[in-house]
Simulated assay, not measured.
Amino acid sequence: MASVREAVLARRSAPKVTDVAPDDAAIIELLRAAERVPDHAALRPWRVIALRGDARSRLGAALAEASGFTGEAASKLAAKPERAPLLLAIVASSTQHPKVPEWEQHTAAAGVAHLLSLLLDDAGWGVMWRTGPYTRDPLVEAAHGLGPNEHLLGWLYVGGLPAGARAARNSRPPAPRFSSLD
């Protein structure tokens, strides 16, 4: 079993995945761990929505409509959710709280997304967190059935890793962005 540090250093985005994906039971099991993020006041201000099959096509149609594109540009945008067999929509579900502002609740939801991506990678799945200019568009949010205090943070595109993909990863971590003030 890899240490947390080893798993973090080994993680890389997988822009191309195969057509296999974890089932809902596997996702729920990984979420049990990912939901251990810091969560001020235990609000659990997130939810995760699995999009498979036709749900990805409906998302693609919403993206194309939100963009205002037509023709080939609209078709290309509509096809993007088909790049993976499973998309996990990460949703920030904020509530009014006197001590926990909305931005902090969104941060907790983003933490769930990041931990889930690490856990999926560690379990051998290819995963990439994708966002884009239409993430917060009302048409795209409506395609996910979001409520009035919910905002889409993006999607984890999940699928199988092509043969040799893990071995081909660059193992050198990026240089830290760090400063210290006295």
Rank of each mutant, 00 (worst) to 15 (best):
A7E: 08
G71E: 12
A110I: 03
A110R: 12
A113K: 03
S171K: 15
A113Y: 14
K76G: 03
N170E: 07
W129F: 15
L161N: 01
V91M: 04
A109W: 03
P138F: 09
V112P: 08
W129Q: 04
E72Y: 10
L77D: 05
G154K: 12
G164M: 08
R44K: 14
A62M: 01
L86H: 13
S57R: 11
A168T: 07
L139T: 12
R44A: 14
G126C: 02
A123Y: 13
A74H: 09
V4W: 11
K76T: 05
G159Y: 11
D137K: 10
Y134L: 01
E82L: 10
S67G: 05
P176L: 13
G60Q: 01
A84I: 04
P15C: 04
R177H: 10
K16T: 09
P162Q: 10
P15Q: 07
R36S: 07
L63G: 03
T70Q: 14
L115N: 15
R83S: 08
A33N: 04
S94G: 06
G164R: 05
A42G: 08
P38N: 01
I28R: 15
E104N: 11
A34Y: 13
A42D: 10
M1F: 05
D137V: 05
V127C: 04
G71F: 10
V127Q: 11
R52Y: 06
L181S: 08
P38D: 01
E82C: 00
S57V: 07
L139Q: 13
G145F: 15
R36E: 02
A78N: 13
A78F: 07
S75N: 10
L153S: 11
G68I: 05
P173F: 08
G154F: 11
E6K: 06
V8M: 14
A143D: 00
A10P: 01
D19E: 13
D39A: 08
E35W: 04
R44Q: 12
P38M: 00
